[in-house]
Computed example of a mutant assay.
Amino acid sequence: MRDGSLGRVVALVRQDCRLLLRDPAPLIVRTVMPLLIMVFMQPLFRAALRADGESDANGAEQGVPGMAVMFLFFLVNIVGFAVFREHGWNTWDRLRAAGARTGELVAGRVVMPLLVALLQLAAVFGAGVLLFDLRVRGSWAALLVVAVPLSLCVVMVGMALTAVCRTIAQLSVLANLLALFFAGLGGALAPHATLPDWTRPLAPGVPSYWAMRGFTTVILDGGGVADVLVPAAALCAFAVGLTALTLVFFRADQRKLSWS
């Protein structure tokens, strides 16, 4: 990337950082909400895990990664809002007039949400250890190997939806539906073995399944980095496919509306 291109991407990242620091409430809420749900749902998660053969489980082994994955996908809204915000403020054309290319605009809007996603995961898992007695039998490095491509995948879901949605209402509805659908089908709300039989052949088609597979391999089975390479590779494949989709359908000259 040439110096001018890098400078434009850095400028976009700095802007997103300033806006996040000015109003960190969305990040705080998305971090606190999964922990609040855990307070009420941990007994159910414990019963589900013990019914699945994990006799010494306390529920945090399912609840913490499950709620972390579920609420991470609600970050999709925030990713899209960054683009729609520029259109609502009538500053998008200024970015284009400054010479920013489509790839630079996409890259500039990916970096900060990616860092936020990783921070959110770290906060939820850390609070899970401190507040809910989460016991990780495997390697924390292996959790990171899953967390990084998962975060990138979530961000690129947001960018792909932004590319195909024309209004912020469309984005919001699709993002929320996908977050709930991914949570249910991927095993974030309950252990995958307890879900209806018809979900099992469909589950590998959503990234949340691979995220939960990777996290539970480490947390419940004591897995290391080598044991989560397949889930991590699957998440990378999702991220690559979503990136390609974004670059194909994203049009810098398409007007995005902040209303229906």
Rank of each mutant, 00 (worst) to 15 (best):
T167P: 06
F215E: 02
K256W: 13
F45Y: 15
P191K: 05
R18C: 06
A211T: 08
G205W: 12
G88T: 03
M156L: 15
M212Q: 04
D133N: 15
Y209K: 01
W259G: 02
Q62D: 09
L152C: 10
R2K: 08
R135E: 15
C236W: 12
R166T: 13
L35N: 06
A193Y: 05
V228F: 10
A183N: 00
A190D: 00
V69Q: 07
R166A: 12
R135Y: 05
L27K: 05
A57I: 13
S151W: 10
N58A: 12
V230M: 13
W198F: 15
L12D: 02
G222I: 05
G80A: 03
F40N: 03
M38G: 13
P201V: 04
L177V: 14
E86I: 02
A239N: 11
G186I: 04
G63I: 10
T167G: 05
G103I: 01
L95Y: 06
V106W: 02
H87Q: 02
P65D: 09
P191T: 04
L21R: 11
R94I: 07
V79D: 01
G66K: 03
L189D: 01
D221S: 13
S139Y: 07
G7F: 00
V155R: 06
R166C: 01
G108H: 03
F238G: 11
T91E: 00
L36M: 13
W140M: 13
